[in-house]
Design a protein around this nucleic acid. Structure first.
Lengths: 152, 152
DNA sequence: CTTAGCTGTAATGTGATATATTACAACCAT
DNA sequence: ATGGTTGTAATATATCACATTACAGCTAAG
């Protein structure tokens, strides 16, 4: 199974909000066009980012704004904001009814749980190490490289 | 989204095969009883473990056997064997149609992909660091602790 | 050599979930 | 007040995890 695309959509949204902030009117339709999904999906993800205190929006008027500096927003923040994993259940779905009358069945949780949590945390720690400043910078860099290549 | 329970079921299966190897006839029904799922699920997972060269089975006669030493089987091996993640797609589902006419849309993959792969790998590396010898040993330990607690 | 017990696997059902889409009320700027 | 936008509910659809039934193929034990 996969972590839903709302995570990468969230990253795309924030990147685009910053990238186009002085150039275009960045409303949900514009973003939906850049991302390639329905505008309602964009609004839903933006709602979650707003609840997480990452962006600010206004009805009627268009354009979301970031409420944090790019270098204060990590991939992990977005991952959490859009609910990529159920915080209760964790990344790994454990079979739900191991038999308490079996010595293996009644101890398998005790033995496995912490290791699964550690694995999940290792992944999340990696996400924490990238900020949206990195992403936006790399994007601008990539765009620059494009125009250099054209000239050759 | 979550990684399917076939992974923890796989770990449970191998643990039980070893734990009960000299005591009970460990067939799919027995395992299903310990795990709390349908026997067909057990057979399916065992099939995948067999294809991965981890267990050996025989029709007719009951009882699967391990074909590797416990300390040569890691959680990662099982995770791969049961297909916990699509090897092509990866752990993170990227939105599929970013707009090539948008500078952000046509570069977001380039900018994000490696970081997502790194995060996934960090998790998988953790899974590699635990062997089934660890799991079985911890299970026996846990069972021992149970009987000690009874005596007090 | 037959029979009981088991495995391998296909076929089907069901519920959950991701994403798409329509619709519309609430709201703001002009 | 009106045009453009957001927030959100409601609904549809496809996919997937897991459950379940069914049965052919195999093996060991009598």
């Amino acid at each position: 199974m996969q972590i839903g695309s709302k995570f990468t959509i969230g990253v795309h949204i924030i990147t685009a909000i910053d990238y186009f902030k002085d150039v275009d009117r960045v409303n949900s339709e514009f973003l939906a066009g850049s991302i390639g999904v329905n505008p309602v999906i964009v609004r839903t993800v933006i709602s979650q980012l707003r609840e997480a205190g990452i962006v600010q929006t206004q009805r009627g008027s268009s354009g979301a704004e970031l409420t944090k500096r790019l270098d204060e927003i990590t991939l992990y923040d977005i991952y959490i904001a859009v609910g990529s994993v159920d915080t209760e259940e964790g990344l790994f779905h454990f079979h739900e009814q191991p038999n308490p009358d079996c010595p293996v069945g009644r101890n398998i949780h005790k033995v496995l749980d912490q290791r699964l949590i550690d694995a999940q945390k290792a992944m999340e720690e990696k996400l924490r190490s990238t900020t949206l400043a990195d992403i936006v910078e790399d994007t601008r860099q990539a765009v620059d490289n494009e125009s250099n290549e054209e000239k050759e």
